[in-house]
């Protein structure tokens, strides 16, 4: 296992370096933050002094060299807008997104397995058709629009839920609901498809012949064998949640990493953008290892290879 993790780590390091280079230069192609930080009427000499103080006037390769040097020393730079270390800002925001993602993924897995399995039991039946329609429609609607409409319906018109913010368990319902829609729709379809395959296989026929109950056939024999695909897709979807989190956190005012990233990008607060991306990339790296680990638990065949 250790050797395996080291190997994976080595591969990921390359991806990390590539990502660093990409983010560094892409961010700087969009202009420097001097104009966005200083007031519109600030005279030219003030602009030059500002750029000098923060090193924006140095040639790009010098800035990049400085950055790499600092990162290797675990210094991720200062947020010029917040006046504190960029990594502090990112680490403060990260747990919020992590919690949001964990709760969403847990619910997405639970409901996709439940709905997908039941749909697969009678493909083309009433339940299957309704479930497919609802989940696919949901997954196709733009989440930004869904979020605003949900607030207007549930909070303003019906007065059932708080509009936004964190706090009580009620505050979680709308953001998690909106974030859930897309992975749920996709994963339900994946579960359904792989379950249809599994239910047609010979071991299920054998189990049926032996007189096993429907529940036992679906949830024990077939499901365990189709879980592998589900876990793979779930991993993809978990990474994609970061995108959803940008929208959901901005609309609902959650101080997570998506929210932080979007405001940092708007302000050209490079250090914060870089810190957020590094942290997110690291989280996805850890998650991939966990998924590989999960494979070995679900499928004994993987363990020997």
């Amino acid at each position: 296992m250790t050797g395996y993790i080291l190997r994976r780590g080595g591969q990921s390091l390359l991806a990390f370096v590539f990502l660093l280079v990409l983010v560094f230069f892409l961010a700087r192609m969009t202009g420097d933050p001097t104009n966005l930080f200083l007031p519109m009427d600030a005279p030219m000499d003030q602009r030059i002094a500002f750029a000098e103080r923060h090193g924006f006037n140095a040639p790009m390769y010098v800035q990049f060299g400085r950055y790499i040097y600092d990162v290797l020393h675990f210094d991720f730079g200062q947020s010029i807008f917040q006046g504190r270390p960029a990594m502090d800002a990112a680490l403060n925001a990260f747990p919020v997104t992590l919690k949001l993602a964990l709760v969403t993924m847990f619910l997405a897995m639970f409901f996709s397995i439940l709905i997908g399995s039941l749909s697969a039991f009678r493909p083309g039946g009433m339940f299957d058709r309704i479930a497919s329609m609802v989940t696919i429609t949901g997954a196709s609607a733009p989440d930004f629009w869904v979020a605003i409409v949900a607030i207007l319906v549930f909070s303003v018109s019906l007065g059932l839920l708080p509009t936004s913010g964190m706090g009580s368990v009620w505050h979680w319902i709308l953001p998690v609901g909106v974030l859930l829609i897309r992975p749920l729709g996709l994963m339900t379809q994946v579960v359904r498809a792989s379950m249809i395959g599994a239910l047609a296989s010979s071991y299920v026929k054998t189990a049926r012949a032996k007189g096993a109950s429907n529940r036992r056939i679906i949830f024990l024999h077939a499901l365990r064998n189709s879980l592998l695909t589900v876990v793979t897709v779930a991993g993809d979807q978990a990474a994609a949640l970061v995108n959803g989190a940008v929208v959901v956190e901005t609309v609902f005012g959650w101080p997570g990493i998506g929210n932080l990233m979007i405001s940092a990008i708007k302000q050209r607060d490079f250090a914060v953008v870089q810190a957020c991306i590094l942290l997110t990339a690291f989280a996805i790296f850890v998650m991939n290892i966990l998924i590989d680990f999960a494979y070995t638990r679900i499928d004994p065949r993987v363990r020997t290879t």
């Binding site: 607030i151 207007l152 909070s155 303003v156 509009t163 609309v251 005012g253």
Partner: peptide, 16 residues
């Protein structure tokens, strides 16, 4: 703070 104007307006309308 909420970046969406619609959300800010909804918050005052709902008394939050």
């Amino acid at each position: 703070w909420r970046s969406e104007s619609a959300v800010r307006a909804a918050m005052v309308a709902s008394g939050e």
